[in-house]
């Protein structure tokens, strides 16, 4: 930290203040939320109604407009938790713990969405709702990892201890995610050499990928809004006995 310029260090410390976070992000939420809703609405309507059907999979491919952003954010969410975990353990920044607390259920929800959409897509594609496809199996294990973090946090009563415990688990988990992913991929190539996969499909024309891009952006914003809101709630809960939260409550109820 010695070689970091003073200004940056001050910014870092201010960012670590839950109060600063709460007061700064309050005005962001409606804007981000609005943008997310707009992007997702345009992307989804375009994807579902106007993009042409896939030449191989017909209309069932359209689920990628939900599935791909959800699956990507499921993994990004876990990585975000691990990054917050490192920040918490190294710099003891309480805000990182609050973000981590907020991300866990949201990430788990996106993971579940990815699994559900993948399984729905599997029905017309493979003729069954569940198949031990490498990607789906990895996502299922990711869901277990999320549930472990949520379970651990609920089991430990003192929030500070819970935060550091979850940070350790998230870091161990995030190192394992690529190992799990590659081992599962490799396992599947041993057992079922030819599965149908989206990546094997030819490049999409713009009319198909532009709505996907819109939805990816929209889901990112949705994720960000959910995490920000979750963190704001967490800030209020953890800081409920501080003066600024009490003043805020008085002002809101007055």
């Amino acid at each position: 930290m010695k070689y970091i310029p003073d200004g940056l260090r001050r910014l870092w410390h201010r960012m670590g203040s839950p109060r600063w976070f709460f007061e700064t992000t309050g005005s962001w939420v409606p804007w981000l939320g609005g943008a997310a809703a707009l992007l997702i609405a345009v992307g989804t309507v375009w994807g579902l109604a106007f993009a042409p059907p896939d030449y191989l999979q017909g209309d069932s491919f359209r689920i990628i407009y939900i599935h791909v952003p959800a699956a990507y954010l499921a993994q990004a969410g876990y990585i975000l938790m691990a990054v917050c975990g490192v920040i918490l353990l190294v710099w003891r920044m309480k805000l990182a713990d609050m973000v981590m607390t907020a991300v866990a259920p949201i990430g788990a929800a996106f993971t579940f969405l990815a699994l559900a959409t993948g399984s729905i897509w599997g029905k017309p594609t493979w003729g069954t709702y569940w198949i031990w496809d490498a990607r789906i199996t990895s996502v299922l294990i990711l869901l277990f990892l999320y549930l472990g973090i949520i379970g651990l946090r609920r089991a430990i009563e003192r929030p500070e201890a819970a935060g550091r415990a979850c940070a350790i688990l998230a870091i161990v988990g995030v190192i394992n995610i690529p190992i799990i992913k590659y081992s599962v991929d490799w396992w599947m190539t041993l057992h079922q050499p030819a599965t149908f996969s989206i990546t094997a499909a030819p490049a999409m024309p713009p009319i198909m990928w532009v709505p996907l891009l819109l939805n990816v952006l929209g889901f990112n914003l949705l994720f960000a809004v959910a995490v920000i809101q979750g963190t704001r709630t967490e800030v209020l809960v953890r800081e409920r006995r501080t003066r600024w939260v009490n003043d805020l409550c008085l002002r809101e109820t007055a």
Partner: peptide
């Protein structure tokens, strides 16, 4: 991680079994 917890046993399985996957494979 679960050493001080009352409901440690089941939680322990949930925490570690997913991590065992690569070794199993």
């Amino acid at each position: 991680l679960t050493v001080g917890l009352r409901a440690g046993g089941v939680l322990l399985a949930l925490l570690v079994l997913p991590l065992f996957v690569p070794v199993l494979i």
